[in-house]
């Protein structure tokens, strides 16, 4: 075809075939777009790395000396699994912001007006988050190794533990996608994501054992998903205590959050 040809009449198109292949193509095309957008926003990439690094340094060298957790002779071995899960939650909250931003800028309207598989739009959002999550998790492990963190288990449980942490992070990115779709506004999404993540991360076994917390707080901390996921990751990477309980809880919470959030987000997306 020639470049001059812009003949609309000669363009009675057939409708784009729908199906699994179109879904996969759309998902990949959009995932690439989401990743390009984040990669080219340097403050996002740097911010995603700086915050957790500060936390590692703060708790390893400033507070770490005075925190003693039974069963962990070296606090850094206790700390790093907590930081990994914290990072995945804080990172996931940026999903809410990206979703709200695409909605308010009209980008979502454009995508929805195209013969795109609508499910692909949200799937691509969370897949891009998963890629980013894998990067930050790898980064946290590397930083951890630099400041003295060591694995104390064989490879399969270690990989299993990391897999659970990633699954939980992926489920949370659906949850944050849902939040972004509901609030629609970038500032509100930022605030809401913070309000949701803060108690989940700090009222948990992230930085210290829940045993020293007052009763009411301990009840919350021991019941909520972040503690279960961190405990599972610790047990699997450090070989400390029985992994079975925390792993089952962590998997149940992750799958539950994933299924409920994805269902609600997809339903919500039809009418945004």
């Amino acid at each position: 075809m020639s470049t001059a040809a812009f003949d609309l009449a000669a363009n009675r198109r057939t409708v784009r075939p729908q199906g699994v292949r179109a879904f996969i193509t759309d998902t990949l095309v959009l995932t690439r777009r989401n990743l390009l957008v984040s990669l080219r926003t340097p403050q996002l990439v740097v911010a995603a790395a700086i915050m957790p690094v500060m936390f590692v340094l703060l708790f390893r060298y400033v507070f770490g000396g005075s925190i003693h957790v039974a069963g962990y002779p070296s606090y850094v071995d206790f700390l790093i699994p907590g930081i990994i899960v914290q990072t995945s939650l804080f990172g996931g909250s940026s999903s809410a912001v990206s979703v709200a931003e695409d909605l308010s800028k009209g980008v979502t309207d454009r995508f929805r007006s195209l013969p795109t598989q609508r499910g692909a739009i949200l799937t691509a959002r969370t897949l891009a988050d998963l890629v980013r999550l894998t990067y930050t998790t790898g980064l946290m492990i590397a930083i951890g190794l630099l400041v003295g963190f060591r694995f104390h288990n064989s490879l399969p449980p270690i990989l299993g533990g990391i897999g659970i942490a990633l699954l939980f992070g992926y489920a949370c990115s659906w949850l944050f996608t849902l939040l972004g779709l509901v609030v629609r506004n970038v500032e509100a999404a930022t605030l809401l994501a913070f309000v949701v993540t803060f108690p989940l991360v700090f009222a948990a076994s992230t930085f210290t054992s829940t045993e020293t917390m007052p009763g009411w707080l301990r009840t919350f901390a021991n019941g909520q998903p972040v503690t279960h996921v961190i405990n599972a990751l610790r047990a699997l990477t450090q070989g400390t205590g029985s992994a079975e309980g925390p792993v089952l809880y962590a998997l149940a919470w992750s799958v539950g959050i994933l299924v409920i959030s994805a269902t609600l987000a997809t339903r919500r997306f039809r009418t945004v």
Binding site: L36, D109, R110
Partner: peptide, 13 residues
Amino acid sequence: GFAGQFAAVDETL
């Protein structure tokens, strides 16, 4: 083809 009220293009692309 739909062109909404805002220029719905990605600034970073």
